[in-house]
């Protein structure tokens, strides 16, 4: 009898504990979302206010853009090549292998170019943004800016977010171009699809709206990656460990946001474009 009562108490205690933990994590998530929203609103407040620090923008533009080009070229070309292979052998079974060109081009334009570019930039530049700002935070460099009367959001976050918003669609366009080139090379040179048919079918099935869809997505991804990277940088506390945690969070949430937003943007853009 006593054992049964003990077991019951244990179960009740565990239930209360897990419910309270669940509640705590829900409150923390809502709190975090609220702080992130406030951060975004502060970005929009400061982005239009002078002084406009073009030099800082171009530094970030160079860092995100130029330094990502090689990775984009490499991953873009191989993505296009593998897409051509996969679709060719599938399509050959139902004798529509002439559609390899448009299927690859459409998939790259609408999905793969913006999403993979977003993931690459989130992993590379998003992490770097969080680490740079986080290190500045723990070494009081952010405080030094504030004491001098310089708004740290305007000085550190604005150039990075704007640069990411501008650069990611450009990198995505490059990914699209090089991906198609890879697909063309494999399709026409290795798989012997007729070159004229390859291009004719792309012209038949692909429209400007498809490219726009990718550019809009990439722009949103750039904005969100920049915002998340800088936000987690500003959230850093507790020295080197905090910087590591902030960087990790920036990468994880940057990548998750790209994938989740991709679904919502697709369902929205399909209706308006």
């Amino acid at each position: 009898m006593e054992n049964v009562e003990k077991n019951q108490n244990f179960i009740v205690r565990k239930f209360v504990e897990s419910t309270s933990n669940l509640g705590k994590s829900i409150i923390e998530s809502v709190d975090g979302l609220g702080r992130f929203t406030r951060f975004i609103l502060r970005f929009f407040f400061w982005v239009f206010k002078p002084p406009y620090r073009y030099k800082l923008f171009f530094e970030q533009f160079y860092f995100i853009g130029n330094k990502s080009i090689f990775i984009i070229l490499l991953s873009g070309s191989f993505t296009g090549m593998v897409m051509a292979y996969q679709t060719y052998f599938g399509f050959k079974l139902i004798s529509v292998d002439s559609l390899v060109g448009p299927v690859t081009a459409l998939t790259l334009a609408k999905e793969l170019a913006p999403v993979l570019t977003g993931l690459i930039v989130a992993g590379r530049a998003g992490a770097a943004m969080a680490a740079q700002i986080g290190t500045m935070k723990v070494t009081e460099q952010v405080d030094a800016l504030e004491v001098m009367g310089i708004n740290s959001i305007q000085y550190l976050a604005v150039p990075r977010i704007v640069a990411a918003t501008v650069t990611v669609p450009m990198l995505s366009a490059l990914f699209l171009f090089i991906g198609n080139f890879g697909s063309y090379m494999v399709g026409t040179k290795a798989l012997m699809i007729d070159e004229a048919i390859y291009f004719q079918k792309i012209g038949e099935f692909m429209f400007l709206e498809d490219i726009w869809q990718g550019i809009i997505k990439a722009t949103v991804f750039g904005f969100i990656i920049g915002s998340i990277g800088t936000y987690f940088g500003f959230q850093v506390t507790q020295g080197a460990q905090g910087v590591g945690k902030g960087t990790n969070m920036a990468v994880v949430w940057g990548m998750i946001s790209v994938l989740v937003l991709d679904y919502f943007l697709t369902s929205f853009l399909i209706h308006i474009l």
């Binding site: 290190t135 500045m136 070494t139 009081e140 460099q141 405080d143 030094a144």
Partner: peptide, 9 residues
């Protein structure tokens, strides 16, 4: 003047 100078690295 900050504790660890807080120079921009």
């Amino acid at each position: 003047l900050f504790q660890y100078a807080a120079l921009f690295d």
